[in-house]
Design a protein around this nucleic acid. Structure first.
Length: 114
DNA sequence: GAATTGACGCGGC
DNA sequence: GGCCGCGCCAATT
């Protein structure tokens, strides 16, 4: 099947691929944009991940976007500051702890294949 | 079709 | 440890 992407109605975009990776993130764990980008096969296109997540539908309950942080283990989210609070709360609810600087220990909560 | 932007990452200072 | 510049791919204007 060469370029026969006509299978399912196409591939709307690489977004779904990114979302698929984010969906694989287990609860209580967080992944960085770069990691998601790599797992999605986008290489170092970390920006795409953020762009794709921002394009998520409002009823995205299948995509734990709140488990995606930047390489600094911090919440980025632009546009809606309230999202930071929501994201942090969701993560804390899963057992992820934040330090005073609102940062997560990626070495401990970082998403690992195993 | 070109230029700009966008929830970033990494190396260097 | 923080700030600066360059690079990445895709979507939008």
């Amino acid at each position: 099947m060469p370029k026969s992407r006509a299978g399912v109605g196409v591939v709307p975009s690489s977004y779904e691929r990114i979302w698929a990776v984010v969906r694989r993130i287990p609860a209580g764990r967080v992944a960085t944009y770069g990691q998601v980008a790599r797992n999605a096969g986008l290489g170092g296109a970390a920006r795409l991940v953020g762009y794709a997540l921002h394009a998520l539908p409002e009823g995205d309950r299948k995509v734990p976007w709140h488990r995606v942080l930047n390489a600094q283990g911090k919440i980025s989210v632009r546009g809606f500051a309230g999202a930071e609070q929501i994201q942090r709360r969701l993560l804390e609810r899963e057992g992820v702890r934040f330090d005073k600087r609102e940062r997560v220990d990626l070495q401990r909560y970082g998403w690992k294949k195993g």
